[in-house]
Every structure is written in C-alpha cells, then in structure tokens.
Amino acid sequence: MKSVHIPLSLLRILGVCALLVLPVPSGADEAENQIKYRQAVMKAIGGHMGASSLIVRGKVSHRDQLKVHANGLLSLSRDIAGLFPEGSDFGETEAREIIWEKWDDFRKAADESKAGIENFVRVVETGGDSDLAAAFRRVGKGCRGCHEDFRQKDE
C-alpha cells in the first residue's frame, strides 16, 4: 500500500484548526456563568420571599420558620450589586443596560433593599408581630424598586 505523504506545513495548519474547535473557556462563558449564578441567587431570594409572604399573611402557621427565611434573605442580599459585574449584560439576562449606565442609582436601590431586609430581620427577631406586615411590605418595595427600573422580563 502506498503511504500518503503530508507536508509538514499542512500538518501545522491542521493542528491550528484542531485547536480552534476545542472548547476553551472564554470571557463569554464567564459572563454566562455570572448570569446563571445571579439568576439562581435571585430565585433563592424569591423562594424566601414567597415563603415569608405566606407566613406574614397568616396563610400558613410556620411562624417559627420566619427567622430562617428572614436570615436567608439577609445573607443573600449582602452584596446584590456585586451580582452585576460589568460585562454581564448580554446573553440570557433580564438585567437592563441602564444598571451600568446609572450605576449609582442602581447601587442606591440595592442598598435600599438591603436596609428593608435588615429591618425585617430585626422585627422578626424581636417578635413584634404587629409590625411584621409593614416591615415585610418594605422588603417588597425594595424588590419592586429595583425590578421597576432595572429589569425587563422577556417571557
């Protein structure tokens, strides 16, 4: 059988082509992962909010669990702005570009959310049940405040 002779330069070109199609971690992947992480954290916050809402509105009687949910919210909301690094504004995200254009306003809204949550934790822990509804509404207002200006739902 006759062997096929491939010139060295052609081998080099083939090698480069092979490298190009290999999956290499890129900046785009990093941004996508940031977005996925952010969405997962937001979902977790939403989970605690949904559970807290049912307790605060008296729909279920897990008052003893409210502390868990309130502290969960607090831990997750320590650095909301940190979930939005620059460059994480493309791909499958509902975050609007205005976040980065008006970063100070965004930071302020995120801080306002955090302050509402800290207040809620205080009310839950000191057991002032008469103030619960108002404290929880303030938390909701924080969520809404950010979503109003900085989120665009696409479904």
């Binding site: 949904g50 807290s52 809402s53 509404r137 909701g140 809404r144 950010c146 979503h147 109003e148």
Partner: peptide, 28 residues
C-alpha cells in the same frame, strides 16, 4: 383572590418574585 389583592397592593407574585417594569409603576 387574596393573592391578587395582595399583588395589587404590593407587587408580590405568588411565587415570591416581585413585578417590575410598567406594572411596578402601576402598583406604585
């Protein structure tokens, strides 16, 4: 009905998410 009433007062969706965009303005 209670979910709806609470939503109109606060913007809270039953799954714990909070409404945004122009509906948040309507609530506000």
């Amino acid at each position: 009905k209670d979910d709806l009433t609470y939503f109109l007062a606060t913007g809270a969706l039953p799954d714990g998410d909070y409404v945004g965009s122009s509906m948040a303005e309507v609530i506000d």
